[in-house]
């Protein structure tokens, strides 16, 4: 497995895309879309993060073991968010007295 040398052109293209997406996230924020503002902002942020991960952090050419390790981070993050938010969202619904009602 020889090291993969990415051409500079790809790096400049990714940089350009990241800049355009930054501008896009700023432009969308000027419009009141209600809850959709957050969905769009996070969607753009996830796209930007994916570009950085795949191209700048070379995950694109990493071994499966490395990719799996990286993904495990986001898996644990999902557990952290999932369980905590499930708790907050359901407080007072399942056991009303817990919330002091």
């Amino acid at each position: 497995m020889a090291e993969h040398v990415t051409s500079r052109k790809i790096y400049f293209l990714v940089f350009g895309a990241l800049m355009v997406l930054t501008l896009a996230t700023w432009l969308v924020a000027q419009v009141d879309l209600g809850w959709a503002n957050d969905v769009v902002a996070l969607g753009i942020a996830v796209t930007k993060a994916s570009l950085v991960l795949l191209f700048f952090m070379h995950v694109r050419h990493s071994t499966r073991m490395t990719v799996l390790t990286a993904l495990s981070g986001f898996f644990w993050l999902a557990i952290l968010f999932g369980l905590t938010i499930a708790d907050y969202a359901s407080r007072g619904q399942i056991l009303p007295f817990v919330a002091g009602e």
Binding site: W26, A29, I44, V52, M57
Partner: peptide, 30 residues
């Protein structure tokens, strides 16, 4: 160099999320 790059890009990704979540919440109210 590669390992420091991974760290540096990670810090960049954190900011990519911080910018819209902290700065752009009320931009449409201006």
């Amino acid at each position: 160099l590669e390992m420091t790059g991974l760290y540096w890009h990670f810090v960049d990704i954190v900011w990519i999320f911080l910018f819209p979540l902290l700065y752009l919440l009320g931009a449409h109210l201006r």
